[in-house]
Write a protein that binds this DNA or RNA. Sequence first.
DNA 1: GATGAACTAGGGCGAGACGT
DNA 2: ACGTCTCGCCCTAGTTCATC
Length: 236
Amino acid sequence: MKAQLNFLERQRQAGNHFPSIEHFIVNTPDINEQKVRRNYLRLLAWRGVKGKFLEALCLMATLTRMTPMGDSFEIELFAQEGPLRVQDQGVSCFIWTQQSVQSEKSGLKAVPDIVITKTPESVTTSNILSIIECKCRDSIGASELRGEFGKAYDLGSPSYILVSYNSVPQSVIDGGQVLGIDVQVFSLNTPERERFLRGERDVAEDMATRLALGRKRRMFLTAIENRASDVRRRGN
DNA sequence: GATGAACTAGGGCGAGACGT
DNA sequence: ACGTCTCGCCCTAGTTCATC
C-alpha cells in the first residue's frame, strides 16, 4: 500500500497526476498497455516483498527440522517473532526473527533475519547459536561477504548461514567457506531448478536440509579457530 | 574496447527511542 | 497519541578498475 502511494507520488513529481493506481492503469485505452502496466506494478511489488517471502520460507524450513516444545505457539510470518521454544536434534533452543541485538563487544546494533539462541531471555551475543540472513540482491560480492563476516564476528555466532535468492558465483561460495559464512542459494536459482519445477524435489524440504546441515557444520566457529591458529603461528 | 568485479552513493522502509 | 529523529536493512544505479 505504501509502495503504491510512493509510486503515485513519484508519478506526481514527474508531472503525472493519478488519484489512484487504478487511474494509472486505465489512463491508456490500449488493453495491452494496461496489461503491461499491471505486470509492471506486480513486478515492483514482488521486488519489494520477495525478501520477506525468502525469510518466511527459511523460518518455516528451519521449524520443519525441529520439535516444538512447551505450549503450542502461533507463528506470525513477516514480523518480529520469538522466542519460539523448540528442540533441535534433542537440544533445547529458541528461535527469533527480526530481533534487534546489540553486540556486547563493539556496542553496535544489528537486526539479523533469523536467530537461534541457547536461552529464552533475549538475543544477546552470549547466547546466539546460529544466524540465518536472507539476501535478494542481484549479486553478492566480496564487499557483501566481508560485511557479513564482520557481523558474524561481532555477534559471535558459531554458525552463520547466508541464503541468497539469486545464484552466487562459485568464488563467493568458496570465499564464504574460508570466512566461515555458509552461503546457500535458493533452490529455484540453482542448476537443479528444472527438477524442482517438475516436482521431483521440494523447495522447502531442500532448504530445510541445507539449513540443518549449516547449523550442524558450525562453519564460522571452525573458520575463526583456524584463522586464530594461523595468526598465532605468524605472531610467534 | 568489452566485460565483469569491486566500490560508492543514495533512497525507501520499518522499528525504536525520545520529546511534546 | 503523535511527530521527529536515528539506525539498520533493503537494495539499485552509476562509476572505477582490472583483466582479457
